[in-house]
Design a protein around this nucleic acid. Structure first.
Lengths: 160, 160
DNA sequence: CCCCTTATTGCAACGTGTTGCGATAGAATC
DNA sequence: GATTCTATCGCAACACGTTGCAATAAGGGG
């Protein structure tokens, strides 16, 4: 087995109130513990509902609790990913970007011409994922899909 | 303008002997200089013809020239990318991997089940790239395409 | 409520890249 | 080959993440 930890999904309808309780239960079931820091990190992640880099999250957590260290934040983010609550992917520069799983699953397109970043929702991605499976037998994770290339506008500009 | 430097392709038929001469000419045309370190870095990159991480390249260069520093190696790799000779992409862990442009352009598939890494050649990728363009108008760079997901074998295992 | 086990934390050090700056050394010109 | 201009180099410091280890604290059992 290559997978260390089992993934048990926690999410579902993530109403703010029940989220903590659910997480707490899920964590305890795994023989792990619920701490104030973990609570805080979940709160911060939920508050920055778009995308946030690891460094940004660390900074925001430390605003509320200066005693928190990067290692704790990153370890907690890893835990949240194992629980299926958070996700991360790597931008074109290789830096990590995190977001809550409750955000609709989506891919990322990064244009090397104008630097624009656009999201790719499940519907738009469906034919792409199908093509990938058809060509390779591979079932790609939409959430880890991060493409680089030229957007339609920049392609037109280049031709002109 | 988002693009800092113009990209002028250097490659073509990269016979070992002429490569250096061509590079040297291309570099000088840009008002830049050809140095022993750059020569060495090109040699190392050519010798490790598959994929090598930035750190690996730094280490190999330092074996031949201990005075070389990481900053020089990385700056040279950037230059080689601008010249179109080298390429890099980010693995699932975000680390950089470099390879010579002469290597056939290809994407990467990383299986989160068994950890296997497989390459995706241009022919196999064609329908995928077409699907991407169809769904998004986006012209994706095959060489920067790094997918994560489950390979056919692991998908079958999961069902069993 | 206290004790015990051990998961979690903070720290310190490391790994991988990046950046600013003064010193060095290409290479074009004389 | 000496001079001059400036690109490149090495260094030192930084940014982002990761890891090992000893101290702390969560939380289950007596």
């Amino acid at each position: 087995m290559a997978n260390g930890a089992q993934k048990e999904r926690v999410s579902g309808s993530l109403t703010a109130g029940s989220l903590t309780a659910r997480l707490q239960a899920a964590v305890r079931e795994r023989g792990q513990r619920w701490t104030e820091q973990r609570q805080l990190i979940v709160d911060v992640l939920a508050a920055s509902d778009g995308h946030a880099t690891g460094a940004e999250l660390v900074e925001r957590v430390r605003q509320d609790d200066p005693s928190a260290t990067p290692s704790t934040v990153y370890r907690t983010l890893d835990l949240l990913e194992e629980l299926g609550l958070a996700r991360h992917h790597h931008g074109p520069d290789g830096r990590e970007t995190y977001h809550l799983e409750e955000t609709t699953e989506h891919g990322h397109l990064h244009c090397r011409g104008c630097g624009a970043e656009q999201e790719l929702d499940a519907a738009a991605a469906a034919p792409i994922l199908k093509a990938i499976t058809g060509a390779t037998g591979f079932s790609a994770d939409l959430d880890h899909l991060s493409l680089q290339g030229l957007c339609a506008t920049c392609r037109a500009d280049q031709k002109g």
